[in-house]
Design a protein around this nucleic acid. Structure first.
Lengths: 145, 145
DNA sequence: TATTGTTATACTCTATAACTATA
DNA sequence: TATAGTTATAGAGTATAACAATA
């Protein structure tokens, strides 16, 4: 393999593995948590980026603004997010997590991490080492624009 | 870090990266066909496991039998799957992909692989190397029971 | 006039309950 | 009687179009 040519078989393996693993991770919590995937994603997004306007949340989570309006309403009804006025722009508002929202996000993250840690524990040592060594690079890969 | 204790920070990083990357990969589909996530998953599942009964597909894709009935109807209407009688049990039927279904699945896989290859190309060399090196281990991780 | 957010309405996907046919 | 699959109906989640308020 040369420097400027990717091994497409390895890429295909990676694609399949990430899709299946991501799928199984998403099922952790979907079952007993009463939140939809987008509601969960919005809580996580705010944790990642800080308070955001509804339009920014809609863009980030690939839904349309009217859908995001409903998602925010639902989260607000459950006391998981709060709506504050934008400091300079009267049209906008900023959505933040409440303390309950932060707790909830932390619990979900913990549960998924625990599930993943259990799976990792079932790998042999070289595999586990390779996967964990690649984690920061995978993070940069996932966060590419 | 000792041998029998996982670095939970690294596991958390991995969790986030796999979830985000999987999410972006799922968005890469064959545009003009307009299949739902479950329809796409069913085509992939049959490719993975061979012809399956509707009830088995429902279990595998975490939907209820009546939902799977509709998914199969839709795929059948598009000519992507075929319904054959079960050889010994008159109640059951077996869902297989048509040639068009196989072509479609291959195209989707190709497109997602191409998207991922492009992203990998934007990483620096050590990151790319780490990720590709971990691909087989990630596959084993994703396929754990 | 353009942008942010909401309301009104319709469509898609999935679930539960009830029904048919076969084992 | 139990199981596989379908039909009928209802409930989420999301989209488009139209509207109100602010820049």
């Amino acid at each position: 393999m040369t420097d400027d040519e990717l091994d497409l078989d390895a890429v295909a393996t990676l694609r399949g593995a990430v899709l299946r693993l991501g799928r199984r991770l998403r099922y952790q919590t979907v079952g007993d948590a009463d939140l939809s995937a987008t509601e969960l994603a919005v809580l996580g997004r705010i944790g990642l980026c800080g308070p955001l306007a509804p339009s920014a949340l809609a863009r980030a989570e690939h839904v349309k603004p009217p859908s995001m309006t409903k998602v925010i309403e639902s989260l607000e009804d459950r006391g998981l997010v709060r709506r504050d006025p934008h400091p300079t722009d009267g049209r906008q508002c900023l959505i933040s997590r409440t303390e309950a929202g932060e707790t909830f996000t932390a619990q979900t993250r913990e549960r998924r991490t625990a599930w993943l840690a259990q799976r990792l524990d079932e790998l042999d040592e070289p595999d586990r080492r390779a996967v964990l060594a690649a984690a920061p690079a995978l993070q940069r890969l996932a966060d590419l624009p």
